[in-house]
């Protein structure tokens, strides 16, 4: 009798702990994924973010980026696109220690327009990838960086 009660309580505790940890992990997953923002090479990031996906190069994504950024710690970018139904936009900088800069979800009530400012470590390509109707499109543009802006 005693052992059953003990077992029962133990099971309860394990179950409770499990549910709590599960809900916490779910919450954090919904918010921010550390794995997306790892220190790694661009190819690894691309392979992890878009496994088995074809990234079609598109000229329908328009980037407004400086040709030369004098200060790599503040590079302004404006993204617009004529592709319909874009729901996610990714900004990546090829040679940053953490290539993924930001990922935006877009509600259909928003125009496909994002303005932001980001850091670039050195001269490289800025890659913008958009997702629309489960298709992925990308475009890239080279930015020359005079003074790097990562670390210091």
């Amino acid at each position: 009798m005693r052992s059953t009660r003990r077992d029962f309580i133990n099971k309860m505790l394990i179950l409770a702990g499990y549910t709590i940890s599960l809900s916490i992990s779910k919450l954090s997953a919904a918010n921010w994924l550390a794995s997306d923002f790892r220190h790694q090479a661009i190819n690894t990031t691309l392979a992890e973010l878009f496994p088995d996906k074809t990234l079609q190069t598109s000229d329908k994504i328009h980037l407004k980026l400086p040709r030369t950024a004098e200060n790599g710690s503040v590079v302004p970018i404006t993204i617009t696109s004529s592709i319909e139904n874009i729901d996610t936009v990714y900004i990546l900088s090829e040679k940053n220690p953490v290539p993924l800069i930001a990922k935006f979800s877009l509600n259909p009530d928003l125009e496909t327009f994002i303005g932001a400012r980001f850091k670039m470590k050195e001269t490289c390509d800025v890659i913008v990838i958009v997702k629309a109707e489960e298709q992925y499109y990308q475009t890239r543009q080279k930015v020359k960086v005079t003074l790097g802006g990562c670390g210091g």
């Binding site: 997306d36 710690s73 930001a102 935006f104 979800s105 009530d109 928003l110 327009f113 932001a116 850091k119």
Partner: peptide, 27 residues
Amino acid sequence: HNNKVMSECQMGFGVSKNPFFSFRLKS
């Protein structure tokens, strides 16, 4: 916008200090 989520952004430290963002609402 009016309590309806328009955009969720996940970012790393690649975003500049004192981050700036702009969006366009259709209506």
